[in-house]
Design a binder for these strands. Sequence first.
DNA 1: TGGAAACTTAAGCAAGTCTTAAGTAAAACT
DNA 2: AGTTTTACTTAAGACTTGCTTAAGTTTCCA
Lengths: 224, 224
Amino acid sequence: MKLLIIEDSASLRRSLRIGLANLGFAVDDTGDGAQGLSMAMTGGYELIILDIMLPSIDGITLLQTIRTKQLDSKVLILSAKQEPEDRVLGLLTGADDYLTKPFSFDELHARLLNLMRRGGLKMMSDIITIDNLALNLQLKLLKVADNVIDLTPNEYKIVECLFSNQNKVFSAEKLSTYLAGQYDLISKNSIEAHLSSARKKVRVAGGELPIQTKRGFGYIVQGQ
Amino acid sequence: MKLLIIEDSASLRRSLRIGLANLGFAVDDTGDGAQGLSMAMTGGYELIILDIMLPSIDGITLLQTIRTKQLDSKVLILSAKQEPEDRVLGLLTGADDYLTKPFSFDELHARLLNLMRRGGLKMMSDIITIDNLALNLQLKLLKVADNVIDLTPNEYKIVECLFSNQNKVFSAEKLSTYLAGQYDLISKNSIEAHLSSARKKVRVAGGELPIQTKRGFGYIVQGQ
DNA sequence: TGGAAACTTAAGCAAGTCTTAAGTAAAACT
DNA sequence: AGTTTTACTTAAGACTTGCTTAAGTTTCCA
């Protein structure tokens, strides 16, 4: 059972590593965000214990990145108590669990076991909520205040891509890759058409897709 | 209370045997799949602790075999495997509980007690009821308001997979893995044909399979 | 080895989705 | 303001997907 610790504090990192290794986990660790990301991408870890505040790449960005890459490592966030609550909540988009520092080692252990037992079921990462919109990644559908909106596969994928990569501009070209893969191409116009249709569907249902056009660059969803 | 441990790792096997014997169980153990199977068939064990990865015969196959032979030993799966598919597959084929390595001895003990307490042949969780349909996982059959519907193995597996994973979209590709395993493939068209046939059988019996098509995504059973 | 059951494949049809293109609107530049 | 560029909208036709049926093919038993 491979496990990766990405934690800034060397002493906490060390004690976590030793404690978890003693419990029978195969543990790797690093204190650097960028290095942690590359390890996460290539190491095939079942679980990643992730600190929020990190040098070079912060925990949020790291989590978002590995989630877009469709890695199915589980992620347990460690956060300092000082973090504002809503910020932590935002972070949990895509995380499977979180612990507030300081925590007891037993507490951590219990949560790890729980995460493993749960298996493929993720709790936080299933639904992305923005304003009165809720995108359900499991059911592949979008709700506007409890009205289900039926999106076609391509419409859905555009929304999913932008919703799960907030605060990042995606060009039509990049979206094309997301929709059709590396070896197929979808024209800019076609993406415009899909997006237009998706926006209309949401508008008809009384909402508004929070996807902004960055003229000349692409599209973005800006979280607060 | 007779109990059989089938576990590859000699050290884990030994510590389980000693620990469980100390708790008052009559414990046998083996590290070999084929031997484990023959012991399971003849030994009259109330409970079998079964590792998935085993020499000569793997755990899943072993479990399937003893289930087809109508043995009523309870089975608790141990697995180090990372894929959640394995977990589900294991449970689908007749396991009573599941633990992921590493686990604490206390955790195992708690689960054993729980399994014994549950007793009886049929557990609540063995029958999945949706509307007027009842899917019996133990008997591998589907009832529409007390009329038994004869599904072929593949038809049954599709229904079982979707019924026991409600509120999740399953693509044809994923279903194929459930039906045929990782190394074999069932074409999309073939799955469509099975599903069509299953739907028809239920319809003829006066019911309706609550399996919805999510065009472009796959199939889903939506619980309440 | 023969026959039944189950599985796969193929083909036709219906329905849904995608792309394109032409027209309209909005922003940026001069 | 006028021009140009970029993005949005719409609708029609092409394409794709999914369902169904029926005809092959395989598998499994007796």
